[in-house]
Design a protein around this nucleic acid. Structure first.
Lengths: 356, 356
DNA sequence: CCACCTTATGACAACGTTGTCATGACATGC
DNA sequence: GCATGTCATGACAACGTTGTCATAAGGTGG
């Protein structure tokens, strides 16, 4: 039984060499300086003569030297590792966050560790071990984990920095990145009102997500500002899932007395609404307008395509990674350095003029 | 300017202490043995008295000791890191792979590094640095990267083990995990034939994915075995995207002479077909049956729900992670230890009896 | 010209593990 | 009973970096 290593290259004898490990010592020798000076150049530390720096950089390039991340994190303070914690939001959301974060991380030589957390199981048991084994430089928290008390506490206890994406409350506790959910929902509602809709239904999102409440509030504010009444039976509770949107729509569209538009506070639920409309032979948008929120890939994967709000997920994740990598700083007592990014209303085919 | 560390725990006073770093030395002292013996217990090495092992394990538990992964990988051979490389397959696919791999990794104390590769840019430049900085124990390759020559070559040159998911060819080159795409497509076609369909169209997938050809072949085989002819204009080329399915369907359904069923070789394309059917006011499934492949979340997020093939993505990724963690082995000269996992035909509402 | 500061550099320890080798306690074979 | 082997353990080096401190070279002010 031999170690199967298509990879270890020369399994058939002395063969061709593996690309030999190049260490900082090799670079030091090649450029005629000490390893410490090489280290300085690599880490952009001050007090290195321009001439010396150039020689070292030339040697690094010539030898294709790459610092070993384990040695780095063992010796120094940084681990060059950023974590992303998530708990099954939609796949589209998750990958978008990852892509946004990685794009920034690559530039700085950081890597991304993804950690799904199952909040129905013991969260402490999942978080604590990974925090102590890998000493990550920071963690990006996605909703609903952005507000999970056990996760936040564990992170703080272990001394690991974190940035929350779209947290629900406790904004002064730690840095965050978010968008103005209330305003976005407000504008979407206005869009429907402008199309002539007066009887608009709303499907609320998962109560554990802070964004749910903000979107709901934006809807209510817009209706009030437009002088329109919101009937109690026109607001349904959902859970951000297709199924919950489907069920809410069945309730909303079940009787003869139907709203002319439904604003679902995320795309998955909006797709559930579309499915019900389809089933009831209601034409979208002539008989019913449907609006979503998020602009997930699914929004375009339906007919008619969904009018929705584009969340800057990619940018939010990138901003979060940035903050973590440069070691978030702030004035004593000042609020955490957080950022509110812009959204965009995406009007497609699922919304149209009110029918009556 | 103070370091902002909401994390450094006690910003509200002396509070509770940061969890102090516990090292192997502490465990050794606590249990009255040398650090080497502790190491042995931790790594399940032989030649440790049961009594000693118990004492060490008690100390580990009492002190909440977790080995530092950087030190481990610096000193030893293992890095406790598994990479997943992908290049924008659908988000659902990506997250499924991640979840499947992580479930296994957690048990063994491994972590997952995700690395999106942009195959339109210089692949070597993206792969080489990450392979040398992080010395991962192995990499899981998802299609179409499973067959990317530059990626495979870089992996082999750097001596990093890898397992390919659903590769297209060159099966003896390295271990892989896959499913029987041909058979699955064969059975799905049979399902349509059994429903009475004779004029069935097929949408081929992205030519860079090995699975595309296998699915196409399965379709052709089933048609032939059923004594049915496949008209040339009933086979359209797609790219596994919603849009490509949409466009293919427009061509397929454009004239008066229409097939009674369309088998799209993935769900995204099938959803494109559904959108066109919707637009043309063709009822699914009474006027047109539509079948997909993959059972992505999107398959349930449409009305009617899609008849499709459930790929064991989660299990495939888990198996791949397993192989990597236990250091893939095989007899000298024997084929790589690979695995073919079971699929499942999922019949939902989008397919029904032929209409004429 | 001396004291002192700044800049550029290197020697060496430290980081927390695992690998290698040595050692002592026992058991086994003849 | 002695050579030989196996088991259980520990001392110590090694892994490849960064942090700390020392030191030499050059600049500045009196």
């Amino acid at each position: 039984m031999a170690k199967y290593a298509p990879n270890r290259a020369n399994r058939t004898g002395e063969g061709r060499k593996l690309s030999a490990k190049v260490t900082i010592h090799d670079v030091a020798r090649e450029s005629g300086v000490s390893i410490k000076t090489v280290s300085r150049v690599l880490n952009r530390e001050p007090n290195v003569k321009a001439d010396t720096r150039d020689r070292v950089q030339a040697a690094v390039a010539a030898l294709h030297y790459r610092p070993n991340i384990s040695a780095r994190s063992l010796a120094g303070a940084k681990a060059y590792l950023i974590g992303v914690f998530f708990d099954n939001p939609s796949p589209g959301y998750v990958t978008d966050v990852q892509l946004g974060a990685i794009a920034r991380c690559r530039q700085e030589g950081f890597h991304l560790i993804v950690e799904p957390i199952d909040s129905t199981a013991d969260v402490e048991d999942q978080v604590a071990p990974m925090l102590t084994t890998l000493r990550m430089d920071g963690v990006i928290l996605t909703p609903p984990l952005s507000d999970h008390p056990v996760v936040l506490a564990a992170l703080e206890r272990e001394g690991v920095a974190y940035v929350r994406i779209a947290p629900g409350d406790d904004f002064d506790r730690a840095p965050w990145v978010s968008m103005d959910d209330r305003l976005a929902a407000y504008e979407m509602t206005k869009h429907l009102v402008d199309l002539g809709h007066k009887d608009i239904a709303f499907i609320v999102g998962h109560p554990d997500h802070g964004a749910s409440h903000r979107r709901h509030q934006g809807f209510l504010d817009a209706m009030r500002d437009s002088g329109l009444r919101v009937r109690d039976d026109r607001v349904a509770q959902g859970w951000f899932s297709f199924r919950s949107g489907f069920e809410a729509a069945e309730k909303l569209l079940g009787g003869a007395d139907r709203p002319t538009a439904i604003f679902a506070s995320n795309d998955d639920m909006a797709l559930g609404v579309m499915a019900v409309a389809n089933r009831l032979r209601l034409d979208v948008p002539t008989q019913l307008s449907v609006a979503g929120f998020d602009d997930t890939p699914g929004a375009k994967i339906t007919w008619p395509q969904l009018t929705t709000v584009r969340q800057p997920i990619h940018a939010m994740a990138g901003a979060a990674a940035d903050m973590l990598m440069q070691g978030v700083e702030r004035e004593e007592g000042a609020p955490p350095p957080s950022r509110l990014l812009d959204f965009e209303l995406v009007v497609r085919e699922s919304t149209g003029p009110a029918s009556h």
